[in-house]
Design a protein around this nucleic acid. Structure first.
Length: 462
DNA sequence: AGATGTTTAGCCGCGC
DNA sequence: GCGCGGCTAAACATCT
């Protein structure tokens, strides 16, 4: 993670951040740098359930890929499905599946580069000389996207402007954006369902009696929103010495904070608690409110205390911003900015995974969802926006923030070259993400947004 | 019947 | 080696 090392920077941050907190206006905008027109062409728009009937416009695959990458969808090695894909697989095609997992089938030896969004190889993956080949997952049916199902679900949810999505919406978004799944055996859908059910990060929202349709809705449980960093599901173990404290202690906290660490979900599921016991245990404490209350103490105690972090940083206790992964924080906060233009709500995906420093670096990205509904929607409450001026202002604000993030991305891009050699270092930091104490009903987008915006602006004040 | 949701089982790769 | 995370597969239940 790029760092800000100068105390001056911290002071600048404090000055600007505090100024903003005091109500000072925003800086003039430069539309040329903040145009979001490209977003409107992003195929993620098709995630809009109303457009998922398969009649949506098709965008050139190259454009899709470019946009997808511009959105910052990172290729994540650790989230790459580790099992042979279903259907016509990359493995079957003899294509090494990323990362570092050579094709398991040697029957066909078609040489192909590993699927990747970024030209950087993953650790353990042999560096290949020559031109970097990128894979367009939208049009290439042979390469399985290197995203875990949880990540795919998260993407679909994020891409949707809805605070809750149906299973079919998730299916549609995935098939719409990843050609592989259009041709794959439908077993992947089973895996999606399995993931939704088993993964505590996803919460089912029962369909109202008067709501037509089948099945319920799904959303990311705000309690676990921080598990999705850069839109990618992160539940990897932390490095032993990443924090100042003991890894064991943090692991303990992680377990406390994330029931997903229950042996049933974890690998020990068959060795410690029986799945039934665990399931019961988990469900007995499943209420986000309960668990939130239970976790609140720890969270407030400073598992990641923003105030103390700033105190450290601003007070010089922290010589650098290394310990403050702003992008992680931002993404943990699920940065959302309302942005609809001319009273017209743009469809899903009016947002971006921002903070892409450089395609040659594995960027630390934050998803800036500019969809209006996300912020204004609460579960079961649809609140049409009729605040054109506010929307304009917020759009401008969002654009401004994007601009600032881009600028800060440039700033962050001035990292040592060797930073690119360890692109996965950020992943090790993922447990550092902030445990959210949010309204479990996606009220987070309302109640939390005020705080979130300030976090979102953190970089803009540097 | 088909879609959706839950649960169980087992395999694999990776990190510690 | 062990634990964990991710995946596939399958059985089963429930709902539309």
């Amino acid at each position: 993670m790029p760092v800000l090392s100068s105390p001056d920077t911290a002071n600048r941050f404090r000055e600007r951040w505090l100024d903003q907190a005091a109500g000072s206006g925003s800086a003039p905008l430069d539309d040329s740098l903040t145009s979001l027109h490209w977003l409107q062409n992003f195929s993620i728009l098709s995630a809009d359930p109303e457009r998922l009937a398969g009649t949506g416009p098709e965008y050139p695959s190259s454009q899709h890929h470019l946009l997808l990458r511009r959105l910052g969808f990172p290729r994540t090695g650790t989230d790459s499905p580790s099992s042979p894909p279903a259907g016509d697989t990359a493995a079957a095609a003899g294509m090494p599946r990323y990362p570092g997992s050579p094709a398991t089938s040697g029957s066909q030896t078609t040489a192909a580069p590993p699927p990747r969004f970024s030209p950087l190889p993953a650790p353990g993956f042999p560096v290949q000389a020559g031109p970097q080949v990128e894979v367009d997952y939208r049009s290439n049916p042979k390469v399985k996207p290197p995203y875990s199902y949880a990540s795919l679900i998260c993407m679909a949810m994020q891409a949707s402007k809805q605070p809750k999505v149906t299973l079919s919406t998730i299916y549609s978004w995935i098939t719409d954006n990843f050609c592989y799944y259009r041709h794959a055996e439908p077993s992947w859908q089973n895996s999606i369902r399995h993931n939704l059910s088993l993964n505590k990060c996803f919460k089912k929202v029962p369909r109202q009696k008067d709501e037509p349709g089948k099945g319920g809705f799904w959303q990311i449980d705000p309690q676990y929103a921080d598990m999705f960093v850069n839109g990618i599901f992160k539940r990897r173990r932390m490095s032993a010495n990443h924090y100042g404290g003991s890894a064991a202690a943090r692991q303990s906290k992680l377990v406390e904070g994330f029931p997903s660490s229950c042996p049933h979900q974890a690998g020990a599921k068959r060795k410690q608690l029986s799945s039934t016991d665990c399931s019961k245990l988990m469900r007995s404490t499943e209420s986000p409110l309960l668990t939130m209350e239970a976790n609140k103490a720890d969270i407030l105690k400073g598992d990641f205390d923003l105030g103390s972090v700033f105190d450290d940083v601003l007070g010089g206790g922290c010589s650098t911003f290394e310990d403050l992964d702003l992008n992680t924080a931002l993404s943990s906060l699920g940065c959302e900015v309302e942005a609809s233009m001319n009273g017209r709500h743009h469809a899903a995906g009016l947002g971006r995974w921002c903070g892409s420093v450089d395609v040659t670096h594995y960027p630390s990205c934050s998803y800036l969802d500019l969809s209006t509904a996300s912020m204004d929607s609460t579960v079961g409450v649809s609140q049409p926006l009729q605040r054109p001026q506010l929307e304009q202002d917020q759009l401008l604000q969002g654009q401004h923030q994007l601009q600032q993030l881009d600028e800060s991305a440039t700033l962050f891009g001035e990292q040592p070259a060797d930073a690119a050699l360890q692109p996965w270092e950020e992943i090790k930091e993922e447990p550092q993400v902030i445990p959210l104490t949010l309204d479990p009903g996606f009220g987070l987008y309302e109640g939390f947004f005020t705080e979130m915006q300030q976090w979102e602006r953190v970089e803009s004040y540097l």
